[in-house]
């Protein structure tokens, strides 16, 4: 067992809409990432996985608001800190973020080096610009990026180069944990590969200690991460190792999700392609009981009335369903 880098307990955050309605997009999420490990979070679009990424940063701005729960990074609880303390000493240094699309992630009218200066100065106001430049040059070279990038404006870079620049900036202050929200989905195949390679490289070089990887592309998760969590309607519905979750899903939603993709593994390729009928529930008025009940093939009356909590399963994994794992496996085998 490695050292725990990130531990999240019962995190709950909400959006407040302009009509003053509360939408709980992250509901009671707990997770743990150990040193040297990577965690993948999967789910349909709108399941709250991007919001979870934002919520994990511990720094909230409208319309997203913190409700309850703890975020502990390397033993330090950041949920109890003042927002400005989080900004000053946590963001970028302890935990860093790679946005969904790098296309617009950088201020178009600021040169890369100036932005890096802004980042460093925001944390250490007395830094010397010359030193920052030197550091940036070394770091960019280390990550295989040309130093000339530093003197360009973001608009002058290609898509893949921009994404790699964003990653280099994100880890510039050597954060302990990196959260990547669909870092490659907007790129072409070869750029995607380079970006993924770069992310894995970061872990190998020890620039980051752990990583959370969010995507809707399951094959990617399976190939890149150690553990996978499946999210549905703001809740975690299943967590386990990548292999367990992909090849032996327990929750009916995970089962449907895995069934709807082709995983390039011999055994799975033959299984039937299926997609899950229906749409996720409206989080403004979440249903009572199981969130997935409306779409579940195996639903029983109790699902709609009982609050369902996570239950442990064999092999150090957990899932959120009223049925035991044997019952589920049997049902899946029968089709």
């Amino acid at each position: 067992m490695g050292k725990t880098i990130l531990k999240v307990d019962n995190l709950k955050t909400k959006y407040i809409t302009r009509y003053n309605e509360d939408v709980y997009a992250v509901n009671d999420v707990s997770l743990e990432v150990e040193e040297g490990k990577s965690l993948g979070i999967a789910g349909e679009s709108g399941c709250g996985k991007s919001t979870l990424a934002l919520s994990l940063m511990g720094y909230y701005f409208a319309p997203l608001h913190y409700v309850s729960g703890d975020i502990v990074i390397d033993g330090k609880n950041i949920s109890s800190l003042e927002p400005d303390a989080v900004r000053q000493s946590v963001l970028g240094q302890e935990i860093a973020y790679i946005p969904q699309s790098a296309m617009n992630a950088l201020n178009p009218t600021r040169k890369i080096i100036n932005f890096i200066e802004d980042v460093v100065l925001a944390h250490e106001p007395n830094s010397d610009k010359k030193e920052i430049r030197q550091l940036a040059e070394t770091r960019f070279e280390l990550l295989g990026l040309p130093k000339s990038v530093l003197d360009h404006y973001p608009v002058e870079l290609s898509g893949g180069m921009k994404q790699r620049t964003v990653i280099a900036i994100s880890v510039f202050l050597s954060p302990k944990i990196l959260i990547a929200d669909e870092p490659s989905s907007a790129l072409d195949v070869s750029s995607q590969k380079m970006v993924i390679k770069m992310l894995l490289d970061l872990m190998d070089r020890g620039l980051v200690k752990a990583m959370i990887f969010i995507t809707h592309e399951l094959p990617l998760l399976y190939n890149v991460t150690d553990d996978i969590m499946v999210m549905y309607a703001g809740q975690i519905v299943e967590k386990g190792t990548a292999r367990q979750t992909v090849f032996d899903p327990l929750h009916p939603y995970s089962k449907g999700l895995m069934g709807s993709i082709i995983v390039p593994e011999a055994g799975v390729r033959n299984s039937k392609l299926s997609s899950i009928p229906g749409v996720p529930p409206n989080l403004k008025h979440p249903p009572q009981g199981c969130q997935f009940a409306e779409r579940c093939k195996y639903v029983v009356e109790e699902c709609k009335t009982h609050e369902i909590s996570m239950r442990p399963a064999e092999g150090d994994r957990a899932y959120r369903c009223i049925f035991g794992e044997d019952v589920l496996r049997k049902a899946y085998n029968n089709g």
Binding site: M57, Y97, N104, A105, V119
Partner: peptide, 21 residues
């Protein structure tokens, strides 16, 4: 609402600097 505002915030840049951007 642009992406770079969110990213700059998450890199710990101060609000008044972001407003300048």
């Amino acid at each position: 609402n642009a992406d770079y505002v969110k990213y700059s915030r998450f890199m710990g840049i101060k609000d008044n600097q972001i407003v300048k951007y």
